[in-house]
Nucleic acid binder design. Structure first.
Length: 518
RNA sequence: CGGGGUGUAGCUUAGCUUGGUAGAGCGCCUGGUUUGGGACCAGGAGGUCGCAGGUUCGAAUCCUGUCACCCCGACCA
Protein backbone atom coordinates (compact mmCIF):
# COMPACT_ATOMS: atom_id res chain seq x y z
CA UNK A 1 0.00 0.00 0.00
CA UNK A 2 1.37 3.40 -0.93
CA UNK A 3 1.76 6.25 1.51
CA UNK A 4 -0.79 8.19 -0.43
CA UNK A 5 -3.54 5.63 -0.13
CA UNK A 6 -2.92 5.39 3.61
CA UNK A 7 -3.56 9.08 3.92
CA UNK A 8 -6.68 8.80 1.81
CA UNK A 9 -8.14 6.16 4.06
CA UNK A 10 -7.65 7.22 7.69
CA UNK A 11 -10.57 5.00 8.72
CA UNK A 12 -8.43 1.92 8.14
CA UNK A 13 -6.51 2.79 11.28
CA UNK A 14 -9.64 2.95 13.41
CA UNK A 15 -10.88 -0.13 15.13
CA UNK A 16 -13.93 -1.67 13.57
CA UNK A 17 -17.17 -0.32 14.98
CA UNK A 18 -20.49 -2.12 15.11
CA UNK A 19 -22.36 0.67 13.36
CA UNK A 20 -21.45 1.87 9.92
CA UNK A 21 -21.36 4.69 9.04
CA UNK A 22 -20.07 6.31 12.22
CA UNK A 23 -21.79 9.33 13.74
CA UNK A 24 -19.20 11.71 12.38
CA UNK A 25 -19.55 10.35 8.84
CA UNK A 26 -23.31 10.41 8.31
CA UNK A 27 -25.45 11.09 11.34
CA UNK A 28 -28.90 10.39 9.84
CA UNK A 29 -27.77 7.09 8.35
CA UNK A 30 -25.98 6.17 11.58
CA UNK A 31 -29.24 6.79 13.45
CA UNK A 32 -31.23 4.47 11.18
CA UNK A 33 -28.62 1.74 11.57
CA UNK A 34 -28.56 2.05 15.36
CA UNK A 35 -32.33 1.70 15.52
CA UNK A 36 -32.30 -1.27 13.17
CA UNK A 37 -29.30 -3.15 14.54
CA UNK A 38 -30.34 -2.35 18.11
CA UNK A 39 -33.58 -4.22 17.40
CA UNK A 40 -35.78 -1.29 18.37
CA UNK A 41 -37.90 -0.97 15.25
CA UNK A 42 -38.04 -1.31 11.49
CA UNK A 43 -40.00 0.15 8.65
CA UNK A 44 -43.20 -1.66 7.82
CA UNK A 45 -44.88 -2.27 4.49
CA UNK A 46 -47.17 0.61 5.37
CA UNK A 47 -45.54 3.83 4.33
CA UNK A 48 -44.52 5.99 7.26
CA UNK A 49 -45.56 3.42 9.84
CA UNK A 50 -43.03 1.44 11.85
CA UNK A 51 -42.99 -1.94 13.50
CA UNK A 52 -41.79 -1.56 17.06
CA UNK A 53 -39.92 -4.74 17.94
CA UNK A 54 -39.94 -6.39 21.38
CA UNK A 55 -36.75 -4.69 22.58
CA UNK A 56 -38.04 -1.27 21.51
CA UNK A 57 -41.49 -1.92 22.88
CA UNK A 58 -39.97 -3.15 26.13
CA UNK A 59 -38.19 0.18 26.41
CA UNK A 60 -41.47 2.00 25.78
CA UNK A 61 -43.21 -0.12 28.43
CA UNK A 62 -40.57 0.82 30.98
CA UNK A 63 -41.04 4.50 30.15
CA UNK A 64 -44.81 4.10 30.33
CA UNK A 65 -44.70 2.42 33.72
CA UNK A 66 -42.64 5.22 35.21
CA UNK A 67 -44.61 8.09 33.73
CA UNK A 68 -47.88 6.40 34.55
CA UNK A 69 -46.89 6.14 38.20
CA UNK A 70 -45.86 9.80 38.21
CA UNK A 71 -49.20 10.88 36.72
CA UNK A 72 -51.13 8.81 39.22
CA UNK A 73 -49.09 10.15 42.11
CA UNK A 74 -50.25 13.63 41.09
CA UNK A 75 -53.93 12.70 41.01
CA UNK A 76 -54.48 11.71 37.40
CA UNK A 77 -56.43 8.72 36.16
CA UNK A 78 -56.32 6.87 32.88
CA UNK A 79 -59.27 6.59 30.51
CA UNK A 80 -59.75 5.90 26.83
CA UNK A 81 -61.46 7.93 24.12
CA UNK A 82 -62.34 7.09 20.48
CA UNK A 83 -59.80 6.71 17.72
CA UNK A 84 -62.18 8.48 15.32
CA UNK A 85 -63.20 12.09 15.48
CA UNK A 86 -66.09 13.56 13.46
CA UNK A 87 -64.75 16.19 11.10
CA UNK A 88 -67.12 18.78 12.51
CA UNK A 89 -65.39 18.51 15.92
CA UNK A 90 -62.06 19.55 14.47
CA UNK A 91 -63.71 22.57 12.90
CA UNK A 92 -64.77 23.96 16.25
CA UNK A 93 -61.41 25.54 17.04
CA UNK A 94 -60.08 27.63 14.16
CA UNK A 95 -56.35 27.58 14.96
CA UNK A 96 -56.55 23.87 15.72
CA UNK A 97 -58.00 22.99 12.29
CA UNK A 98 -55.43 25.15 10.55
CA UNK A 99 -52.65 23.32 12.36
CA UNK A 100 -53.77 19.77 11.70
CA UNK A 101 -55.98 19.72 8.60
CA UNK A 102 -53.08 19.08 6.25
CA UNK A 103 -51.98 15.88 7.91
CA UNK A 104 -55.20 14.03 8.68
CA UNK A 105 -56.15 10.50 7.66
CA UNK A 106 -59.85 10.47 6.87
CA UNK A 107 -62.32 7.58 7.04
CA UNK A 108 -65.11 7.97 4.51
CA UNK A 109 -66.63 4.49 4.15
CA UNK A 110 -67.64 1.62 6.37
CA UNK A 111 -67.75 -1.30 3.96
CA UNK A 112 -65.71 -2.87 1.16
CA UNK A 113 -66.97 -4.61 -1.93
CA UNK A 114 -65.54 -6.07 -5.13
CA UNK A 115 -65.32 -3.45 -7.86
CA UNK A 116 -65.64 -4.00 -11.62
CA UNK A 117 -61.98 -5.06 -11.80
CA UNK A 118 -62.52 -7.63 -9.06
CA UNK A 119 -60.44 -5.69 -6.54
CA UNK A 120 -61.77 -4.53 -3.21
CA UNK A 121 -62.90 -0.94 -3.02
CA UNK A 122 -64.92 1.15 -0.57
CA UNK A 123 -68.58 0.47 -1.32
CA UNK A 124 -70.13 3.61 -2.82
CA UNK A 125 -73.35 2.77 -0.99
CA UNK A 126 -71.50 2.74 2.31
CA UNK A 127 -70.23 6.29 2.40
CA UNK A 128 -70.38 7.93 5.81
CA UNK A 129 -72.73 10.87 6.21
CA UNK A 130 -69.94 12.63 8.08
CA UNK A 131 -66.32 11.61 7.48
CA UNK A 132 -64.26 10.63 10.51
CA UNK A 133 -60.72 11.75 11.11
CA UNK A 134 -58.26 9.37 12.70
CA UNK A 135 -57.20 11.38 15.74
CA UNK A 136 -54.07 13.46 15.27
CA UNK A 137 -54.63 14.50 18.92
CA UNK A 138 -57.74 14.29 21.05
CA UNK A 139 -58.55 17.76 22.39
CA UNK A 140 -61.79 17.98 20.44
CA UNK A 141 -63.29 14.57 21.14
CA UNK A 142 -62.29 14.73 24.79
CA UNK A 143 -63.55 18.31 25.04
CA UNK A 144 -66.93 17.22 23.69
CA UNK A 145 -67.03 14.48 26.32
CA UNK A 146 -66.02 16.79 29.16
CA UNK A 147 -68.79 19.15 28.11
CA UNK A 148 -71.25 16.43 29.06
CA UNK A 149 -69.53 15.64 32.34
CA UNK A 150 -69.23 19.15 33.67
CA UNK A 151 -72.17 21.13 35.05
CA UNK A 152 -70.93 22.46 38.36
CA UNK A 153 -67.65 23.70 39.78
CA UNK A 154 -67.98 20.57 41.93
CA UNK A 155 -67.30 18.48 38.81
CA UNK A 156 -63.85 20.05 38.48
CA UNK A 157 -61.04 19.45 38.15
CA UNK A 158 -61.02 16.59 35.68
CA UNK A 159 -57.56 15.06 35.57
CA UNK A 160 -57.36 12.38 32.88
CA UNK A 161 -54.62 10.81 30.82
CA UNK A 162 -54.86 8.35 27.97
CA UNK A 163 -52.25 6.06 26.44
CA UNK A 164 -53.01 5.87 22.77
CA UNK A 165 -51.87 5.92 19.19
CA UNK A 166 -52.36 8.94 16.96
CA UNK A 167 -51.95 9.51 13.24
CA UNK A 168 -50.39 12.48 11.50
CA UNK A 169 -49.83 11.98 7.80
CA UNK A 170 -46.19 12.96 7.69
CA UNK A 171 -44.51 13.43 4.33
CA UNK A 172 -41.01 12.75 5.62
CA UNK A 173 -41.16 9.87 8.06
CA UNK A 174 -38.21 8.79 10.21
CA UNK A 175 -38.29 5.96 12.71
CA UNK A 176 -39.47 7.23 16.11
CA UNK A 177 -38.79 10.87 15.26
CA UNK A 178 -41.58 11.43 12.81
CA UNK A 179 -43.88 8.60 11.82
CA UNK A 180 -47.40 8.61 10.43
CA UNK A 181 -48.63 6.63 13.41
CA UNK A 182 -47.05 6.91 16.81
CA UNK A 183 -47.71 5.98 20.42
CA UNK A 184 -48.00 8.55 23.14
CA UNK A 185 -49.80 9.63 26.26
CA UNK A 186 -52.03 12.65 26.18
CA UNK A 187 -53.26 14.27 29.36
CA UNK A 188 -56.37 16.43 29.22
CA UNK A 189 -57.47 18.38 32.25
CA UNK A 190 -60.23 20.86 32.97
CA UNK A 191 -60.16 23.33 35.87
CA UNK A 192 -62.29 25.87 37.64
CA UNK A 193 -59.74 28.67 37.50
CA UNK A 194 -57.03 29.93 35.25
CA UNK A 195 -54.47 29.70 38.07
CA UNK A 196 -55.22 26.02 38.64
CA UNK A 197 -54.86 25.26 34.95
CA UNK A 198 -51.57 27.16 34.69
CA UNK A 199 -50.31 25.32 37.79
CA UNK A 200 -51.25 22.02 36.18
CA UNK A 201 -49.41 22.92 32.97
CA UNK A 202 -46.28 23.75 34.94
CA UNK A 203 -46.57 20.74 37.23
CA UNK A 204 -46.65 18.38 34.27
CA UNK A 205 -43.69 20.08 32.65
CA UNK A 206 -41.89 19.45 35.93
CA UNK A 207 -42.75 15.76 35.69
CA UNK A 208 -41.41 15.62 32.16
CA UNK A 209 -38.22 17.35 33.15
CA UNK A 210 -37.69 15.03 36.11
CA UNK A 211 -38.43 11.97 34.01
CA UNK A 212 -36.06 13.07 31.26
CA UNK A 213 -33.27 13.84 33.71
CA UNK A 214 -33.56 11.04 36.26
CA UNK A 215 -34.69 8.19 34.04
CA UNK A 216 -33.60 8.96 30.48
CA UNK A 217 -30.40 10.77 31.52
CA UNK A 218 -31.42 13.65 29.26
CA UNK A 219 -30.53 17.17 30.31
CA UNK A 220 -33.31 19.41 29.01
CA UNK A 221 -34.01 23.09 28.85
CA UNK A 222 -37.48 24.05 30.01
CA UNK A 223 -39.34 27.06 28.81
CA UNK A 224 -42.11 28.44 26.71
CA UNK A 225 -42.59 28.29 22.94
CA UNK A 226 -42.83 31.47 20.91
CA UNK A 227 -46.17 32.13 19.28
CA UNK A 228 -45.11 30.72 15.94
CA UNK A 229 -44.06 27.41 17.49
CA UNK A 230 -47.08 27.10 19.74
CA UNK A 231 -49.54 24.20 19.65
CA UNK A 232 -52.49 25.11 17.39
CA UNK A 233 -55.17 26.48 19.68
CA UNK A 234 -53.05 26.86 22.81
CA UNK A 235 -52.58 30.05 24.80
CA UNK A 236 -49.20 28.91 26.04
CA UNK A 237 -47.01 25.94 25.12
CA UNK A 238 -44.33 24.83 27.56
CA UNK A 239 -41.69 22.37 26.49
CA UNK A 240 -38.63 20.40 27.36
CA UNK A 241 -35.94 20.69 24.73
CA UNK A 242 -32.86 18.49 24.42
CA UNK A 243 -29.68 18.75 22.36
CA UNK A 244 -28.66 15.52 20.66
CA UNK A 245 -25.28 14.51 19.26
CA UNK A 246 -25.55 16.28 15.92
CA UNK A 247 -26.16 19.41 18.04
CA UNK A 248 -29.72 19.83 16.84
CA UNK A 249 -32.59 20.43 19.21
CA UNK A 250 -35.41 18.02 19.72
CA UNK A 251 -38.68 18.76 21.45
CA UNK A 252 -39.04 15.92 23.91
CA UNK A 253 -42.32 16.83 25.57
CA UNK A 254 -44.92 19.58 25.66
CA UNK A 255 -47.47 20.87 28.13
CA UNK A 256 -50.11 23.29 26.89
CA UNK A 257 -52.20 25.83 28.72
CA UNK A 258 -55.27 26.03 26.50
CA UNK A 259 -57.01 28.86 28.32
CA UNK A 260 -60.73 28.76 27.50
CA UNK A 261 -60.20 28.23 23.77
CA UNK A 262 -61.21 24.61 23.71
CA UNK A 263 -63.80 24.84 26.46
CA UNK A 264 -65.56 27.54 24.46
CA UNK A 265 -65.26 25.50 21.26
CA UNK A 266 -66.58 22.37 22.95
CA UNK A 267 -68.96 23.95 25.44
CA UNK A 268 -67.27 22.88 28.68
CA UNK A 269 -69.12 25.21 31.02
CA UNK A 270 -70.22 25.11 34.59
CA UNK A 271 -72.07 27.01 37.24
CA UNK A 272 -69.56 28.69 39.54
CA UNK A 273 -69.58 29.11 43.30
CA UNK A 274 -71.20 32.50 42.69
CA UNK A 275 -73.88 30.99 40.47
CA UNK A 276 -72.48 32.37 37.21
CA UNK A 277 -72.06 30.31 34.06
CA UNK A 278 -68.34 30.03 33.28
CA UNK A 279 -66.10 28.19 30.86
CA UNK A 280 -63.56 25.75 32.21
CA UNK A 281 -59.81 26.29 31.85
CA UNK A 282 -58.14 23.36 30.17
CA UNK A 283 -54.70 21.91 29.59
CA UNK A 284 -53.24 19.16 27.47
CA UNK A 285 -49.80 17.57 27.56
CA UNK A 286 -47.95 14.70 25.99
CA UNK A 287 -44.83 12.74 25.34
CA UNK A 288 -44.48 10.16 22.62
CA UNK A 289 -42.32 7.34 21.30
CA UNK A 290 -40.20 10.17 19.95
CA UNK A 291 -38.55 9.99 23.38
CA UNK A 292 -37.02 6.72 22.20
CA UNK A 293 -35.51 8.46 19.20
CA UNK A 294 -34.21 11.16 21.51
CA UNK A 295 -32.54 8.62 23.79
CA UNK A 296 -30.91 7.00 20.75
CA UNK A 297 -29.57 10.24 19.31
CA UNK A 298 -28.44 11.44 22.72
CA UNK A 299 -26.67 8.38 24.08
CA UNK A 300 -25.82 5.89 21.32
CA UNK A 301 -22.25 5.58 20.06
CA UNK A 302 -20.50 4.00 17.07
CA UNK A 303 -21.15 0.55 18.54
CA UNK A 304 -24.91 1.11 18.87
CA UNK A 305 -27.38 1.87 21.59
CA UNK A 306 -26.59 2.72 25.18
CA UNK A 307 -29.75 2.50 27.25
CA UNK A 308 -30.13 4.33 30.55
CA UNK A 309 -30.25 1.62 33.25
CA UNK A 310 -33.44 3.01 34.77
CA UNK A 311 -35.45 2.30 31.62
CA UNK A 312 -33.53 -0.59 30.03
CA UNK A 313 -35.81 -3.62 29.50
CA UNK A 314 -32.90 -5.81 30.61
CA UNK A 315 -30.34 -4.22 32.89
CA UNK A 316 -27.97 -7.14 33.21
CA UNK A 317 -27.43 -9.86 30.65
CA UNK A 318 -25.51 -12.97 31.56
CA UNK A 319 -23.60 -14.60 28.73
CA UNK A 320 -22.65 -18.20 29.49
CA UNK A 321 -19.41 -19.12 27.74
CA UNK A 322 -19.66 -22.80 26.86
CA UNK A 323 -16.67 -23.80 24.75
CA UNK A 324 -16.61 -27.42 25.86
CA UNK A 325 -19.46 -29.87 26.05
CA UNK A 326 -18.35 -31.35 29.37
CA UNK A 327 -18.53 -28.05 31.25
CA UNK A 328 -21.60 -26.71 29.48
CA UNK A 329 -24.21 -27.90 31.97
CA UNK A 330 -22.22 -26.60 34.92
CA UNK A 331 -21.77 -23.17 33.32
CA UNK A 332 -25.46 -22.86 32.48
CA UNK A 333 -26.43 -23.87 35.99
CA UNK A 334 -24.03 -21.33 37.48
CA UNK A 335 -25.43 -18.67 35.16
CA UNK A 336 -28.98 -19.33 36.30
CA UNK A 337 -27.88 -19.29 39.90
CA UNK A 338 -26.12 -15.99 39.40
CA UNK A 339 -29.23 -14.60 37.72
CA UNK A 340 -31.37 -15.59 40.72
CA UNK A 341 -28.98 -13.94 43.12
CA UNK A 342 -28.97 -10.76 41.03
CA UNK A 343 -32.76 -10.72 40.73
CA UNK A 344 -32.91 -10.64 44.51
CA UNK A 345 -31.05 -7.33 44.42
CA UNK A 346 -32.81 -4.04 43.73
CA UNK A 347 -32.13 -0.87 41.79
CA UNK A 348 -34.18 2.16 42.85
CA UNK A 349 -36.48 -0.11 44.81
CA UNK A 350 -37.21 -2.55 42.00
CA UNK A 351 -35.78 -6.02 41.39
CA UNK A 352 -32.94 -6.07 38.86
CA UNK A 353 -33.99 -7.06 35.36
CA UNK A 354 -31.67 -9.93 34.49
CA UNK A 355 -31.60 -12.14 31.42
CA UNK A 356 -29.52 -15.25 30.71
CA UNK A 357 -28.78 -15.51 27.00
CA UNK A 358 -28.61 -19.24 26.30
CA UNK A 359 -28.85 -18.96 22.54
CA UNK A 360 -26.53 -21.30 20.69
CA UNK A 361 -24.43 -18.59 19.06
CA UNK A 362 -20.79 -17.82 18.77
CA UNK A 363 -19.65 -15.92 21.86
CA UNK A 364 -18.51 -12.87 19.95
CA UNK A 365 -21.75 -12.60 17.99
CA UNK A 366 -23.75 -12.80 21.17
CA UNK A 367 -21.69 -10.15 22.91
CA UNK A 368 -21.95 -7.73 20.03
CA UNK A 369 -25.68 -8.33 19.86
CA UNK A 370 -26.10 -7.02 23.41
CA UNK A 371 -23.68 -4.19 22.81
CA UNK A 372 -25.77 -3.01 19.87
CA UNK A 373 -28.93 -3.33 21.96
CA UNK A 374 -27.37 -1.13 24.60
CA UNK A 375 -27.81 -3.42 27.59
CA UNK A 376 -26.12 -1.53 30.47
CA UNK A 377 -24.21 -4.44 32.02
CA UNK A 378 -22.94 -7.68 30.50
CA UNK A 379 -21.62 -10.50 32.63
CA UNK A 380 -19.65 -13.32 31.06
CA UNK A 381 -19.42 -16.58 32.90
CA UNK A 382 -17.22 -19.42 31.63
CA UNK A 383 -15.50 -22.59 32.79
CA UNK A 384 -12.46 -20.71 34.08
CA UNK A 385 -14.74 -18.59 36.24
CA UNK A 386 -16.33 -21.66 37.77
CA UNK A 387 -12.93 -22.69 39.02
CA UNK A 388 -11.90 -19.25 40.24
CA UNK A 389 -15.29 -18.02 41.50
CA UNK A 390 -15.13 -14.97 39.28
CA UNK A 391 -17.15 -13.38 36.49
CA UNK A 392 -16.23 -10.90 33.76
CA UNK A 393 -18.05 -7.58 34.07
CA UNK A 394 -18.54 -5.21 31.13
CA UNK A 395 -20.34 -1.90 31.29
CA UNK A 396 -21.82 -0.51 28.09
CA UNK A 397 -20.75 3.07 28.70
CA UNK A 398 -17.13 1.94 28.58
CA UNK A 399 -15.30 0.57 25.52
CA UNK A 400 -16.73 -2.54 23.92
CA UNK A 401 -13.68 -4.57 24.91
CA UNK A 402 -13.23 -3.25 28.43
CA UNK A 403 -13.73 -6.15 30.79
CA UNK A 404 -13.09 -6.63 34.48
CA UNK A 405 -12.78 -9.96 36.24
CA UNK A 406 -14.23 -9.79 39.73
CA UNK A 407 -15.33 -12.35 42.32
CA UNK A 408 -18.95 -13.40 41.66
CA UNK A 409 -19.98 -12.34 45.16
CA UNK A 410 -18.59 -8.92 44.54
CA UNK A 411 -20.50 -8.66 41.26
CA UNK A 412 -23.75 -9.52 42.98
CA UNK A 413 -23.03 -6.96 45.66
CA UNK A 414 -21.98 -4.11 43.40
CA UNK A 415 -24.12 -4.34 40.25
CA UNK A 416 -26.74 -1.91 41.60
CA UNK A 417 -24.00 0.66 42.25
CA UNK A 418 -22.59 -0.04 38.83
CA UNK A 419 -25.97 0.65 37.21
CA UNK A 420 -26.26 3.89 39.15
CA UNK A 421 -22.80 4.87 38.07
CA UNK A 422 -23.70 4.22 34.41
CA UNK A 423 -26.88 6.24 34.79
CA UNK A 424 -24.94 9.17 36.25
CA UNK A 425 -22.14 8.96 33.72
CA UNK A 426 -24.62 9.07 30.87
CA UNK A 427 -26.26 12.18 32.25
CA UNK A 428 -22.95 13.87 32.92
CA UNK A 429 -21.72 13.15 29.40
CA UNK A 430 -24.89 14.48 27.85
CA UNK A 431 -24.78 17.61 29.98
CA UNK A 432 -21.12 18.24 29.19
CA UNK A 433 -21.86 17.86 25.49
CA UNK A 434 -24.69 20.36 25.67
CA UNK A 435 -22.63 22.85 27.61
CA UNK A 436 -19.77 22.50 25.20
CA UNK A 437 -22.06 23.43 22.31
CA UNK A 438 -24.15 26.13 23.94
CA UNK A 439 -22.96 29.67 23.38
CA UNK A 440 -24.00 33.10 24.52
CA UNK A 441 -24.06 35.13 21.32
CA UNK A 442 -24.67 38.86 21.10
CA UNK A 443 -23.96 39.81 17.51
CA UNK A 444 -25.67 38.93 14.28
CA UNK A 445 -22.33 38.15 12.61
CA UNK A 446 -21.31 35.64 15.24
CA UNK A 447 -24.80 34.14 15.23
CA UNK A 448 -24.76 33.58 11.46
CA UNK A 449 -21.22 32.19 11.59
CA UNK A 450 -22.19 29.79 14.39
CA UNK A 451 -25.03 28.32 12.37
CA UNK A 452 -23.30 28.16 8.98
CA UNK A 453 -21.26 25.13 7.94
CA UNK A 454 -17.74 25.76 6.63
CA UNK A 455 -18.08 23.11 3.97
CA UNK A 456 -21.34 23.61 2.09
CA UNK A 457 -21.00 20.45 -0.01
CA UNK A 458 -20.78 18.13 2.93
CA UNK A 459 -21.65 20.17 6.02
CA UNK A 460 -19.65 19.25 9.09
CA UNK A 461 -21.23 19.08 12.54
CA UNK A 462 -21.63 22.69 13.57
CA UNK A 463 -23.72 25.05 15.64
CA UNK A 464 -25.61 24.02 18.73
CA UNK A 465 -27.70 26.15 21.04
CA UNK A 466 -27.31 29.89 20.96
CA UNK A 467 -28.51 32.04 23.85
CA UNK A 468 -29.34 35.26 22.11
CA UNK A 469 -31.61 38.22 22.74
CA UNK A 470 -34.81 38.63 20.72
CA UNK A 471 -37.21 41.52 20.36
CA UNK A 472 -40.24 39.23 20.47
CA UNK A 473 -41.27 39.69 16.85
CA UNK A 474 -42.30 36.94 14.47
CA UNK A 475 -40.60 38.83 11.63
CA UNK A 476 -37.17 38.26 13.13
CA UNK A 477 -37.99 34.58 13.67
CA UNK A 478 -39.14 34.18 10.08
CA UNK A 479 -36.10 35.84 8.60
CA UNK A 480 -33.70 33.72 10.62
CA UNK A 481 -35.61 30.57 9.79
CA UNK A 482 -35.37 31.41 6.10
CA UNK A 483 -31.70 32.35 6.28
CA UNK A 484 -30.39 29.58 8.51
CA UNK A 485 -33.21 27.10 9.24
CA UNK A 486 -32.74 28.11 12.85
CA UNK A 487 -35.72 28.65 15.16
CA UNK A 488 -36.42 29.62 18.73
CA UNK A 489 -36.60 26.35 20.63
CA UNK A 490 -37.77 27.90 23.84
CA UNK A 491 -37.92 30.99 25.94
CA UNK A 492 -36.32 29.76 29.16
CA UNK A 493 -38.05 30.39 32.46
CA UNK A 494 -36.71 32.93 34.89
CA UNK A 495 -33.76 34.19 32.86
CA UNK A 496 -34.93 37.78 32.81
CA UNK A 497 -31.74 39.69 32.06
CA UNK A 498 -32.71 42.46 29.61
CA UNK A 499 -30.60 43.41 26.59
CA UNK A 500 -30.76 44.25 22.92
CA UNK A 501 -31.89 42.07 20.03
CA UNK A 502 -28.91 41.84 17.64
CA UNK A 503 -31.18 41.32 14.63
CA UNK A 504 -33.43 44.35 15.07
CA UNK A 505 -31.53 46.52 17.52
CA UNK A 506 -34.68 46.70 19.61
CA UNK A 507 -34.89 46.00 23.36
CA UNK A 508 -35.16 42.37 24.50
CA UNK A 509 -36.57 41.11 27.77
CA UNK A 510 -34.30 38.09 27.91
CA UNK A 511 -32.14 35.69 25.93
CA UNK A 512 -33.91 32.83 24.16
CA UNK A 513 -32.58 29.51 22.89
CA UNK A 514 -32.01 29.24 19.17
CA UNK A 515 -31.12 26.06 17.29
CA UNK A 516 -31.77 23.91 14.29
CA UNK A 517 -34.33 21.33 15.21
CA UNK A 518 -35.89 17.99 14.38
C1' C B 1 -48.06 19.41 -5.21
C1' G B 2 -43.10 20.82 -8.42
C1' G B 3 -38.00 18.69 -10.02
C1' G B 4 -34.90 14.24 -10.25
C1' G B 5 -34.18 8.96 -9.55
C1' U B 6 -34.99 3.69 -8.55
C1' G B 7 -37.86 -1.03 -8.74
C1' U B 8 -33.84 -8.18 -9.88
C1' A B 9 -33.79 -13.87 -3.59
C1' G B 10 -35.02 -11.89 3.41
C1' C B 11 -31.10 -7.60 2.71
C1' U B 12 -27.31 -5.09 -0.53
C1' U B 13 -26.83 -5.50 -5.50
C1' A B 14 -24.32 -7.17 -10.93
C1' G B 15 -26.44 -7.86 -15.65
C1' C B 16 -29.90 -3.53 -19.36
C1' U B 17 -26.40 0.84 -23.71
C1' U B 18 -25.47 -4.00 -27.94
C1' G B 19 -32.56 -8.88 -26.66
C1' G B 20 -30.84 -15.53 -26.38
C1' U B 21 -34.37 -17.38 -20.66
C1' A B 22 -30.40 -14.70 -13.99
C1' G B 23 -25.00 -14.16 -11.08
C1' A B 24 -22.54 -12.45 -6.49
C1' G B 25 -21.96 -10.90 -1.23
C1' C B 26 -24.47 -10.97 3.42
C1' G B 27 -28.31 -13.66 5.84
C1' C B 28 -30.82 -18.62 6.16
C1' C B 29 -30.62 -24.48 6.40
C1' U B 30 -27.48 -29.20 7.01
C1' G B 31 -22.80 -31.61 8.50
C1' G B 32 -18.03 -30.98 10.57
C1' U B 33 -14.12 -28.15 12.99
C1' U B 34 -14.63 -23.99 16.39
C1' U B 35 -16.20 -20.74 20.65
C1' G B 36 -13.05 -15.85 26.87
C1' G B 37 -14.52 -10.69 21.41
C1' G B 38 -18.18 -9.85 15.05
C1' A B 39 -15.10 -17.96 13.13
C1' C B 40 -13.77 -21.50 9.19
C1' C B 41 -14.59 -25.58 5.60
C1' A B 42 -18.03 -28.41 2.64
C1' G B 43 -22.86 -28.99 0.86
C1' G B 44 -27.92 -26.85 0.21
C1' A B 45 -32.70 -24.04 -0.13
C1' G B 46 -34.48 -19.48 -2.06
C1' G B 47 -35.89 -15.13 -7.85
C1' U B 48 -42.47 -16.04 -13.21
C1' C B 49 -36.39 -9.54 -12.66
C1' G B 50 -42.86 -4.06 -9.31
C1' C B 51 -47.49 -4.72 -12.36
C1' A B 52 -50.16 -4.59 -17.22
C1' G B 53 -49.85 -4.31 -22.31
C1' G B 54 -46.87 -3.96 -26.90
C1' U B 55 -42.63 -5.14 -30.46
C1' U B 56 -40.06 -9.93 -31.40
C1' C B 57 -38.97 -16.72 -33.12
C1' G B 58 -37.30 -15.03 -28.24
C1' A B 59 -37.74 -9.46 -23.28
C1' A B 60 -34.75 -8.41 -16.68
C1' U B 61 -32.84 -5.88 -21.23
C1' C B 62 -36.47 -2.20 -26.32
C1' C B 63 -41.49 0.72 -26.37
C1' U B 64 -46.18 2.45 -23.87
C1' G B 65 -49.01 2.75 -19.61
C1' U B 66 -49.47 2.09 -14.47
C1' C B 67 -48.22 1.44 -9.32
C1' A B 68 -44.83 1.81 -5.43
C1' C B 69 -40.74 3.70 -3.10
C1' C B 70 -36.37 7.05 -2.54
C1' C B 71 -33.85 11.96 -2.92
C1' C B 72 -34.28 17.60 -3.34
C1' G B 73 -37.97 21.42 -2.54
C1' A B 74 -42.69 22.80 -0.34
C1' C B 75 -45.14 21.15 4.29
C1' C B 76 -44.27 19.51 9.43
C1' A B 77 -47.82 20.26 17.92
Amino acid sequence: MSEESKVENPKAKLEKSAISPRRAEDFPEWYQQVVRLGELAENSDVRGCMVIKPWGYGLWERMQATLDAMFKATGHQNAYFPLFIPISYLEKEAAHVAGFAKECAVVTHHRLEAGPDGKLRPAPSAELAEPLVVRPTSETIIGATYAKWVQSYRDLPILINQWANVVRWELRPRLFLRTAEFLWQEGHTAHETKEEAVDETEKILGIYETFARDFLALPVFTGEKSESERFPGAVQTLCIEAMVQDRKAIQAGTSHFLGQNFSKASGIKFQSREGREEFAWTTSWGVSTRLIGTVVMMHADDDGLILPPRVAPTQVVILPITPKEDTRAAVLEAAEKLASRLRARTFHGQPLLVHVDKRDLNGGVKSWDWIKRGCPVRIELGPRDLASGTVALCRRDHGAKAKEFVPADQAVATVPELLQSIQETMYARALAFREQHTRVIDTKEEFYAFFTAQNTDKPEAHGGFSLTHWNGSAEVETRIKEDLKVTIRCIPFGAGEAGACPFSGQPSAQRVIWAKSY
